[in-house]
Simulated scan of single mutants.
Amino acid sequence: MTTDIRPVGDDDFFGWLPLFEGYCRFYGHDLDDAKALIVWNWIRDEQHPLDALVAVDDEGTPVGLAHFRPEPDTLTATTGLHLDDLWVAPDHRATGVGRALIESVHARAGQLGGGVSWITAEDNEQAQRLYDALARRTSWVTYEMDA
């Protein structure tokens, strides 16, 4: 089985949707139609910073997604990418799909002159095994303020 990584296209909505729903469910968020359409429109809007890649199987079915956006780094005066969301369908995990998605985002960041950063849940140990193999774990502490 081979997997190709490519930008999300207009015809990918119904393949992307169950992947994004799985991602939302994993992190304890409900995905309704309105939220799905907002995020999809962000991805498809060339004026919005959010971008996306999908991993597709031999039949062209999306089996993984990566959502990312430009992130200026004032300390290095470069622009890299922030990987917001990474999700691989459960039956395609441990096959290299997640790695290929991250490496593709990293290649795009290199074109901008920067790197890639992301966060994950502390208990997401399966993903962290991959992340530890690809990137440097930082000591930064994340804070959030609700709207």
Score class of each variant (00 low, 15 high):
V8W: 05
H82V: 14
L101K: 08
G28E: 10
F20V: 06
L50S: 00
D85N: 12
V105L: 11
D58A: 11
N41V: 05
L17G: 00
D11G: 09
T76D: 04
L101G: 03
L81G: 06
G110H: 09
H92Y: 15
L31W: 04
H67L: 14
G110P: 03
H29F: 12
G110E: 11
L101A: 08
N41G: 12
P49F: 04
E21G: 15
A34Y: 00
D84C: 10
L101E: 02
L75I: 11
A107W: 02
A100V: 10
D30A: 15
E103A: 09
D84T: 14
D45G: 08
D73W: 03
D85K: 14
T95W: 09
T95Q: 13
D51P: 01
R6E: 05
G96T: 00
R108P: 00
R69C: 15
R99K: 09
A36T: 06
G22L: 08
P62R: 07
P62G: 04
D33H: 02
L75W: 04
I43V: 01
R25I: 12
V54H: 06
V97N: 07
W40C: 10
A77I: 02
R93C: 15
I5P: 08
G60V: 03
T76F: 06
G9E: 08
D11M: 01
P70D: 02
D91P: 03
A34V: 05
H106A: 15
I5D: 08
D10T: 05
D33R: 12
D51Y: 04
I38R: 13
L83S: 13
A36I: 05
G9Q: 09
P7C: 02
G60F: 01
A100W: 01
G96F: 02
D45L: 10
F26C: 09
V105F: 11
C24V: 08
P7I: 01
P90Y: 01
A66L: 00
P72A: 10
H29C: 10
P49N: 08
D10W: 11
T79Y: 10
R93P: 12
A89H: 08
T61N: 05
A36S: 06
G98N: 07
V97W: 04
L101R: 02
G28I: 07
I102P: 04
F20M: 09
W87N: 15
F13P: 03
A89D: 13
P70K: 07
A107T: 13
L53C: 00
E46M: 02
R99W: 03
L81T: 06
I102M: 09
L81P: 05
F26R: 14
R93Q: 15
P72K: 01
D73Q: 07
V56H: 05
L37Q: 14
A55V: 13
R99E: 06
P72S: 10
L81A: 15
F14N: 14
A66R: 05
H92A: 13
E46H: 04
G80R: 13
G60N: 02
P49S: 03
A34N: 05
D33P: 03
E103Y: 00
R108M: 04
D10Y: 07
